[in-house]
Design a protein around this nucleic acid. Structure first.
Lengths: 355, 355
DNA sequence: CTTTCTTTTTGAATCGATTCAATATTGGGC
DNA sequence: GCCCAATATTGAATCGATTCAAAAAGAAAG
């Protein structure tokens, strides 16, 4: 495995041709006479030449043919988080079609992510801004490469981003449950502000720095108020999108004198955790409690009962994002993508009163 | 977003220092006097310099600080397949710790994978040889970069690889069920040879080109024969590790006059699909049928009942693989890693006869 | 045997940095 | 004021390819 240090120049010399010709053999074979070409190739093989070095080529061509996926999370996030996986699977399809590679760049602590973003060999970035989005955007800006942000919690229009219609989706989700006849709701929220978990009031929502969560809450309120349910009467619990905090949230919601018959979960991840918790408590879904999620991850369709949810069009988002980055054609205005209601088994009309 | 074409040389000139000093400002700041450093940095910022170009740096340094993960599968495989995900999550942890990036290199058709392997900017490769392994190994060899193969279906000792003890693991799996009292078994196999699905006999197993599947079958036989069960009495069905073929296999196994009370699945993926199929048929697991998997993917612990399985030590495999590739210290001999039995709820003693 | 094209091949410049031996500057001690 | 170290800075060489104008070779026509 002794890494040979054979250069194109060596091959050229050994074959008795100029370096230019040797280069052409590998890059535009049609331009060099057949017998010369064969001779050069043979010489290359004899010397154990590994083919034109990518770095040399890169230096002149300047294209890596890969896009970076960045997040302020440990690398394993990309393989474990359902939303990230669904999105990346969609991105993969687009990349496959265009022969583009995928480089995962990430790190939990900001210093490391800084270095990784600076040193990733990519033509552009797709940013997963679930957390630490501003920092990520700023770092990427410095790289001066095309990029586009997803799930950005910031409405600054100067940041190229693709967002889903969180308000509209939340309206549809809450209306779906209200139309089924529910009147006692509980909301399990994704992060609203840093370093906080627990019940949140109206003021905290309105002040929340994470616009994704804030907008989903606003959508829920808007729809429920149309059914005469006041926002003060809808308990909201802010979670960290993980098991302990979601279970704490459920403990909170179900310790109320009149526990909810419908759970509005701001992510499918939360919704799936909630369903498990409810069933472990002997509450059946959807008979005792209906649950609706948000995101539309594939797992939602594979559990029993299936998860009713607001599905993001991952394929469309991925297509837009990859094309924007690849062709440096980042949209001038923020793209806003709609979400669609998928009704499965986790929502139904509430039990008639008193039964 | 006009991509500035500012080079280090431009900054140096504008700041009135030599290129060497400018380079030092970015790479060994401690060596240049503070006021000069600040001045250079300021000039760089003023000109909109994006930092030393990676390709320039790369050309001299020759290290990319990333490893490639390659497979002959569509890119989405890395985010969808449970085994690949479990492995990659473990690899991610190791890479996180050492600040190494991860590049996903893949493609379904061989031509594309060829190009992708040739042009990936990485320091080495980890090969997921679930399919088309030989081709992948050959391509990677040509790159002359360090690499290590996982799940390799080839016993050629000249290929650096880490293998799990398939025979030993299969022995333990089958013995576990036999000790519980089972005597009627069915095997759902992973691929044995290309382009074949369906029931396979002893001869076909012994001729199978995929050594992973072959060795697991050999292990099952070995353990069962110690309990007086002859290999001819154990029906084996070769699947493609996907839902349709697994269900076809179950149809086959359970259409026998004396259907099995215990299923030996060669992957957790198969085992999980089998459990779903059985329950949909009204057969309870483990009361009616016990199921044991192989691999130890996290999903196995998250379903109800939990999946009994032979767990691969993903963390250990990942650590070995990454270190080998990163330090070009590929083991001379093939590493052989043991697997451990994890007993969960999917296996139990068979129902007493006649009940 | 020229002349005029066309096809091949050459050689030097270039991409954008890093590196290091050589040189310049600074400060301290006497 | 001089010398010696220690510290900073310079400038040219280098990494491994691609590119392209120019030169050489070959072919066809007169």
């Amino acid at each position: 495995m002794a890494k040979g240090t054979i250069r194109l120049a060596d091959v050229a010399r050994a074959a008795g041709v100029s370096q230019g010709t040797a280069s052409n053999v590998f890059n535009r074979p049609e331009v060099v006479r057949e017998e010369v070409r064969e001779h050069v190739l043979e010489t290359a093989k004899r010397l154990g030449y590994a083919g034109p070095s990518l770095t040399g080529r890169l230096l002149r061509a300047g294209k890596v043919n890969a896009i970076g996926i960045a997040a302020v999370e440990p690398l394993a996030y990309f393989f474990n988080d359902p939303w990230a996986r669904a999105l990346l699977a969609a991105v993969s399809k687009v990349c496959d079609a265009s022969g583009t590679g995928l480089a995962l760049v990430s790190a939990k602590d900001r210093q490391t992510v800084d270095w990784n973003v600076k040193s990733a060999l990519v033509d552009g970035f797709i940013l997963l801004c679930v957390e630490g989005g501003e920092k990520l955007v700023q770092l990427t800006r410095e790289r001066q490469l095309p990029f586009i942000a997803l799930a950005l919690n910031d409405e600054d229009p100067s940041i190229p981003a693709i967002s889903v219609d969180n308000v509209g989706g939340a309206v549809v989700a809450a209306r779906h449950l209200a139309e089924l006849g529910h009147s006692r709701f509980g909301v399990l929220a994704t992060e609203l502000s840093d370093d906080h978990v627990g019940p949140v009031g109206i003021a905290e929502i309105e002040r929340g720095i994470y616009s994704t969560s804030r907008n989903r809450a606003l959508g829920y309120w808007q729809a429920l108020e149309a059914f005469g349910i006041r926002r003060e009467d809808v308990p909201i619990y802010e979670t960290l999108n993980d098991k302990p905090s979601v279970e704490a949230g459920l403990d909170y919601l179900f310790s109320a004198p009149e526990p909810p018959t419908a759970i509005l979960a701001m992510s499918d991840n939360i919704a799936l955790l909630a369903i498990n918790w409810l069933r472990a408590r002997g509450l059946s879904v959807p008979q005792d409690v209906s649950v609706i999620g948000f995101d539309g991850v594939p797992e939602g369709g594979m559990v029993e009962p299936g998860l009713t949810t607001m599905a993001q069009p991952f394929a469309e988002i991925a297509e837009l994002a990859v094309q924007a980055v690849l062709h440096d054609a980042v949209p001038a205005e923020r793209e806003m993508i709609g979400v669609t209601l998928i009704v499965r088994g986790s929502t139904a009309a509430p039990r008639p009163m008193g039964i």
